[in-house]
Amino acid sequence: MRDHFTLKRLLLGFAVLALLSLGLFAQEYRLFERAWFNLQQSGKSLAAERDILLSGYQVEIEAKVIEGLDDDVSALTYDPDRNSLFTVTNQKAQLIELSLDGELLRRIDLHGFGDAEAVEYISKGLYVISDERRQRLIKVWVDDSTTELHADQAQQFSLSIGRNGNKGFEGLAYDSAGQRLFVAKERDPMRIYEIHGFPQRDPQQPFAVHVVDDQQRDAGLFVRDLSSLQFDERSGHLLALSDESRLVLELNVEGKPISSLSLLSGRNGLKRSVPQGEGIAMDNQGVLYLVSEPNLFYRFKKPGA
C-alpha cells in the first residue's frame, strides 16, 4: 500500500513538472497570445478594404537557391525604380541586387560597414544600410556604375540603445510619406524604433533626429524575435518577420497585429517550413518576397491578384 501511495505521488509530481514545463515553453514562445490571435482571426467576417490580409497569400516560388553566392544573405528591400530587389551579405560584406525571380544581377563591395545586416530603399538611388553590432545606420547612394561603397565616406547615425552583441538592428522599413525609418531590434529587448530626420534628404536643413520607442505596441507582438520589416505605403501597415516564430505579422496603423502569414510546412502552400527567414519585401503590386538562410528565395502572391 505504501509503495502504491509513493508511486502515485511520484506520478503526480512528474505530471505537475510536465505541466509547468509546458506552461513555461508556451510562455517563452508566446503560444497563448498566438492561439488567442488565431481564434480572433477565425471569428472575423469582415476586414478593412486596405488590409493586406497575409493569410490569403500562397507561395509561388519556394526555396529557390540563389546561385552565385557563397555568403548568407540578410534582409531584403524592393527598388521600384529598378524593379529589382536588394539584400546584403555580412561575412564578405556586399550589397546584392536580385531580380524578382531570385536571380543574381550584381554585387557591390561594402568597405567599413561592420556587420551589415539590413538594407532599405529610401528614394531613387538612396539607401540605408545597418551595422548590427555597432547599431549604425549608414546612408549610401547607388547608381548603375557603383561597384563599391565606403562607410567612411557616407553620412552615419548611431543609435546605441540596448546594445546586445549581435542581437541589434535586424530590419529596416521606410515610410516615404511620413518620412519615418522603422528600425527593428532583434530581441533582448525586441523593439521597433521610429526614426525621424534620418536619412536627411535636404542637406540645407539642420540635422535633427527624433526617435520614437513604443514599448506598449512592441509588447503586443507575440513573436520571439524580429528579422525584417516592410512598410506598405498603400495601407500604412507594417509587416514584421520573425525567424524563430516562423511568422509574418501585419500591424495596422495603431501597431496591432491584424493578420499573419505562417512559414510552417503545409501552410500557405509551403511544402517545407522556411528554415531561417531573414528578409521580406513587397513590390508595387503587393507581391511578397522573402529570403532565408542559406540563400533561399521565396515569392508569395494572392491567387488571382
Rank of each mutant, 00 (worst) to 15 (best):
residue 118 A to C: 05
residue 68 G to I: 09
residue 176 S to D: 15
residue 74 S to C: 10
residue 218 D to Y: 04
residue 109 D to W: 02
residue 81 D to Q: 10
residue 45 S to T: 07
residue 158 S to T: 14
residue 97 E to C: 00
residue 223 V to T: 15
residue 252 N to I: 01
residue 260 S to Y: 08
residue 76 L to Q: 01
residue 258 I to Y: 04
residue 204 Q to F: 10
residue 117 E to A: 14
residue 154 A to I: 02
residue 239 L to F: 03
residue 228 S to T: 07
residue 113 F to T: 05
residue 124 K to N: 10
residue 222 F to N: 12
residue 228 S to Q: 07
residue 57 Y to V: 02
residue 47 A to C: 07
residue 233 E to K: 14
residue 305 A to L: 10
residue 149 L to E: 05
residue 41 Q to K: 08
residue 171 G to F: 05
residue 97 E to D: 03
residue 193 Y to Q: 01
residue 187 R to Y: 12
residue 38 N to S: 12
residue 137 L to W: 04
residue 6 T to K: 13
residue 284 N to L: 15
residue 245 S to M: 13
residue 236 G to S: 07
residue 238 L to V: 10
residue 286 G to V: 13
residue 53 L to F: 01
residue 301 K to A: 15
residue 189 P to E: 11
residue 296 L to K: 03
residue 73 V to K: 10
residue 179 Q to R: 15
residue 178 G to P: 05
residue 216 Q to T: 14
residue 281 A to L: 06
residue 76 L to E: 01
residue 169 F to N: 02
residue 38 N to P: 01
residue 246 R to F: 11
residue 67 E to V: 14
residue 26 A to N: 08
residue 21 S to W: 13
residue 86 F to C: 05
residue 95 L to N: 07
residue 59 V to K: 08
residue 156 Q to T: 09
residue 257 P to K: 07
residue 158 S to K: 06
residue 154 A to S: 15
residue 92 K to Q: 13
residue 192 I to G: 07
residue 232 D to H: 09
residue 223 V to D: 09
residue 148 E to S: 12
residue 22 L to S: 12
residue 73 V to F: 04
residue 115 D to G: 00
residue 52 I to R: 04
residue 145 S to Y: 01
residue 278 E to L: 13
residue 304 G to T: 14
residue 111 H to L: 03
residue 20 L to A: 15
residue 53 L to I: 12
